[in-house]
């Protein structure tokens, strides 16, 4: 029998703490596949954030640092400046990156830090129990927007990829979705490009991945994928927003 798909060796062989059907697991797998394919496991250093991905360091068989809430790009900057030969990636959710960590992500991009950022956008705070995120859709019900996000008092969703694409120092900014195999495959190619860029010294790369949170959205994992496709993609269009440094 010839292998068509086997478990990436950069993943540790443990059960994750993620809920059933959580697309964090898919994103982890894609990052691990990329690390394997690029042959960089021995020199990759990950940075875990705060939120559901706080334990990411348990799941990748690479060196890892666990950062304070929102500060993963600053921590990654510190690592990369000490070890420019290492491949450094931060793995952050939307509460971490797009809310409390907005300054850190923007300025890491402004400096053109040669790091890779994997940004999970599932429109909600998962770990703390389903509160409104900066990425929560207008009208979306969460535990802190129980009547639906009201733009009059709670503002509009933050579009990180669009925002960062205006930053001259950013080299690669792209948004993909994990709601079906074809899109997962595209996301994989984007992630690989984001790591390849770092290997080639091209600078800051961020891949935003539209993801699900079936537990806090209150639906089955399969229905969550459908909800993502029907509700998130219209608000967060997919594509590569920036490839190459400059305006």
């Amino acid at each position: 029998m010839n292998p068509v798909y086997t478990r990436p060796k950069s993943l540790t062989n443990v059960v994750t703490h993620y809920c059933p059907g959580c697309t964090h697991g898919i994103a982890h797998r894609l990052v691990a596949e990329t690390i394997d394919e690029l042959g960089i496991q021995g020199r990759t250093i990950g940075v875990a954030s705060v939120g559901c991905s706080v334990f990411a360091y348990n799941y990748f068989d690479v060196d890892f640092q666990q950062a304070a809430h929102g500060r993963a790009p600053a921590v990654a900057t510190g690592i990369k400046r000490v070890r420019p030969e290492s491949i450094v990636f931060a793995y952050q959710g939307d509460g971490d990156l797009a809310s409390i960590g907005m300054a850190e992500i923007v300025h890491a991009a402004v400096r053109g830090e040669n790091i890779t950022v994997i940004f999970i956008n599932n429109a909600i705070y998962g770990m703390t129990g389903g509160q409104m995120a900066p990425t929560t859709l207008v009208g979306q019900k969460t535990t802190t927007s129980p009547f639906g996000r009201d733009p009059g008092t709670q503002g509009y969703p933050v579009k990180i990829s669009e925002l960062l694409s205006t930053v001259k120092g950013a080299y690669y900014v792209a948004r993909f979705s994990l709601h079906n195999p074809a899109n997962v495959q595209r996301a994989k190619q984007g992630i690989k490009k984001a790591f390849q860029n770092q290997i080639e010294g091209k600078g800051f790369s961020l891949v935003e991945l539209l993801s699900t949170c079936s537990t806090n959205w209150g639906m089955t994992p399969q229905n969550a994928l459908k909800w993502l496709e029907e509700n998130m993609i219209p608000e967060y269009p997919l594509g590569e927003f920036k490839t190459g440094e400059g305006e």
Binding site: A74, V75, G78, V82
Partner: peptide, 14 residues
């Protein structure tokens, strides 16, 4: 806030 977190990363990297 960011500078001290850079210290965290850099110190952790040796």
């Amino acid at each position: 806030v960011s500078s001290i977190n850079m210290v965290y990363g850099a110190a952790g990297a040796g």
